[in-house]
Design a protein around this nucleic acid. Structure first.
Lengths: 239, 239
DNA sequence: CGCGCGCCTCAAGATGGCGTCAAGAGCCGA
DNA sequence: TCGGCTCTTGACGCCATCTTGAGGCGCGCG
């Protein structure tokens, strides 16, 4: 499930894009301003579609922030596709050199946009070292074999239900990072259940019973109150 | 010295491109047909500029060959930029999905071409490079990692409550600027609480206890009386 | 000198997020 | 059809956190 952030102040354009993307199996977040966009980046979108003319600033500032010219937020490698009514060459050059990955001038065909999105995602996948489907992850005492669909904790094989397996896969693939409630719910249960936080509580508890070496004390599967969950990476260093 | 292969059957276009590229410190090889292009690939160019209409076949075949649908020749990751007079959307989609990295329709500005070449080369460089580290905001002794939802002050990890974390995020993202009471309240508590200035006092005090290195004396989290708060930017210079 | 204003501190009560337990529904294989 | 596994859903108690109120300090002004 690929998550895309749309940043545009025109509601009509956002609606069009959202409909198109959802029809092609993406999940979508929307922002109408720079401030909203910064907030939405916390959901770690796989791609950003960005309009340049925003009410509270220039979209290029967001690109610069993403690319980390100094103080930089999450997602240094998130691809950005600019969509803009400005068709002057200087604008394109400025945006591309600021770190954008592509530049389409409005109006554009949705087919072309989708093709260019595929290119951008292809690049991102190869840049971050595509997670092979048969990869074996190891975090602390937890070993997860995606290909064999097997989990071993401290040398002992552990049986996980399908949902627990998906949860652990997400956590392990992003070990160390906080995964928001919405992110986990979207990836495991689908976009229709992003508000069912209670699912997480119940299934995280079940997962803890199975993967925590010391029962009653969470050493690896950590709660970030109000935000989400996180799997500790690196070696154990908790008293 | 970056080596670029130009594939186009029009001599005039080749001359123009060659002149432009050489002026920008590239070295250039030229091909006027698919057969010549295949031979020129032996020189392992860092980038290919490819016209679609060639006398002995479609340029897309060259892209497919490069992307290795089977036995792949040199340079499976060599970026390819298409330049073509065909401006139909279907042509663009076909080329991009075949593995091309960008598509410009003739006529185009050389400035834009150069910018898109820089993008393509950037991608190629990062594809083989190290995985991007987590971007981190750093202001003075305060380090804020949005992805990991972690805060470190002077080397020590610090636990922040959700509200404290949101406050610090705002301050750090706009380090040096004054954030008004209303702005902070709107971003952290929502538009319904823009007048609850007392919330700010209490939580700013808590934040100070956690991030100020020297207790009792605010060096970083500064009060702007009657206006709002500000995080000092740059190095410490307060006596 | 006294007052009002804006700010900081402290602390107690209210809130809400979280983990837990358990009952019921759905699903699948035997 | 039956039994077992899994997921959903609800109820409940705990506890960190937030809210709210009271008081104190410094400062400018009448």
């Amino acid at each position: 499930m690929t998550h895309v952030l749309i940043v545009d102040d025109e509601v009509a354009m956002r609606r069009l894009l959202r409909a198109t993307l959802i029809a092609h199996d993406f999940t979508v977040a929307e922002a109408g301003s720079l401030a909203e966009a910064r907030r939405a980046l916390a959901e770690a979108p796989a791609l950003v579609i960005l309009d340049l003319g925003l009410p509270d600033g220039d979209g290029i500032d967001l690109v610069r922030a993403l690319r980390g010219g100094g103080a930089a937020p999450v997602g240094g490698a998130t691809p950005v596709i600019i969509i803009s009514a400005r068709d002057r060459e200087a604008d394109k050059i400025r945006a591309l050199d600021a770190g954008a990955d592509d530049y389409l001038t409005k109006p554009f065909g949705t087919g072309e946009l989708l093709a260019r999105m595929r290119v951008a995602l292809r690049h991102a996948a190869s840049a971050s070292g595509a997670p092979a489907p048969d990869a074996v992850y190891a975090v602390g005492p937890i070993h997860l074999d995606l290909g064999r669909h097997e989990v071993v904790v401290a040398g002992k094989p552990v049986h996980l239900t399908p949902i627990e397996f998906k949860l652990l896969t997400q956590l392990v693939q992003h070990a160390g990072k906080v995964l928001t409630h919405r992110h986990l719910l979207r990836e495991v249960w689908g976009p229709g259940s992003v508000d069912e936080v209670h699912y997480l509580r119940v299934h995280m508890a079940a997962l803890r019973r199975k993967i925590e070496v010391e029962p009653g004390r969470a050493r690896w599967l950590l709660t970030e109150p109000g935000v989400g969950y996180r799997l500790r990476d690196g070696d154990d260093s908790s008293g």
